[in-house]
Each structure stands twice: as structure tokens, then as C-alpha cells.
Amino acid sequence: MHPVRKKRLTIVLFLLIGLSIAVALTTYALRQNINLFYDPSQIAAGEAPVDVRIRAGGMVQEDSVIRDPESLKVEFKVTDFTSSVLVEYTGILPDLFAEGQGVVAMGRLDGEGRFMADQVLAKHDENYMPPEVNDALEKAASLRAAESTGAAESSTGY
């Protein structure tokens, strides 16, 4: 084969190999590491998968934080004011974690509807609301509004 063509062929081969390795790694890694967000209503309705790493978020329910007296274990409820889910976490909570604040937790649901969190995020700014939580709250609120205004309007819904 002509040396120039041979060289081009090697380069193209290298590129192809590199590309396919990259694609394979990426798809594999993506499949493992996409964390979907679920709000408390979805979790209560059983829409969220069990024992898959997901994110859940909402407001920390007032008077729901219970600390273990011996360790760093803590339990609290996260609510969208329609449903709530019990979150269990061991470790240090962020500075801005407080009852009535929006949080997002990463973790897995166990079989009994408890959310075993391995990470709890509350953002750095007290006025900040995680966008997911904001959406979830709005969704729950509009659902409640729709229910309270009765069935007449729901037929005209989208």
C-alpha cells in the first residue's frame, strides 16, 4: 500500500478505536450514574424504583427531625405538602439544613418506603430553592388546587 495511505489508515484506525472505547465507556458509565429526581408524591405513589440510586427533594417538615442520641444518625421527613417521605441519614448535615428549608437528598429507597440517604444537599443561600424542589412544590400545590375545586373543572383539564 502507498505509505501515505497506510499512514492515513493507521490514524483512522487509531481514531476509530479511541472513539469506540470512549463510546463504550460513556454509555456504560452513563447507565450506571444517571440519578433521576422524584418528588415525595411520586415516591408515595410508588413511582420511584426501589434500591436504585435516585434523588428526592422537598421541604424538611417542621418538627420531624429526630437525632439519635448516640451517633450521627438523623431522621427527618421531606414533604411537598401533599405527601411526605421519611429520610434516614448518617453524617454531617449541611450548614443551611433546617426545618422548613428545601433540601435534595441522594440515596436509595428501601422496601418499606424509607429513603436511605447518603448525601444531603441544602444550598448555600437561604433564599435559594433547588429548582427540582420548586417544581415539585408547585406541582403538588396545583394538584391540590385542582382537587379542591372539584371534578367539574378537571374535565376541562389538559
Binding site: 465507556l25 452513563l30 450514574n33 444517571i34 440519578n35 433521576l36 429526581f37 429548582p131
Partner: peptide, 23 residues
């Protein structure tokens, strides 16, 4: 990827650190 999906209204997801570490 998460930004595009969110913009297209195809769900909110996040891609965690393990993805980057692994690749």
C-alpha cells in the same frame, strides 16, 4: 446532557461524580 434534557422537558436528572471518575 442534564441541561439539555431539562430544557427539552425530558426529566430532571443529574450525572454523578462516578460517571466522571469512571470515564
Amino acid at each position: 446532557y442534564p441541561l439539555v434534557l431539562d430544557y427539552l422537558d425530558m426529566g430532571r436528572l443529574s450525572i454523578g461524580e462516578p460517571f466522571f471518575n469512571l470515564t
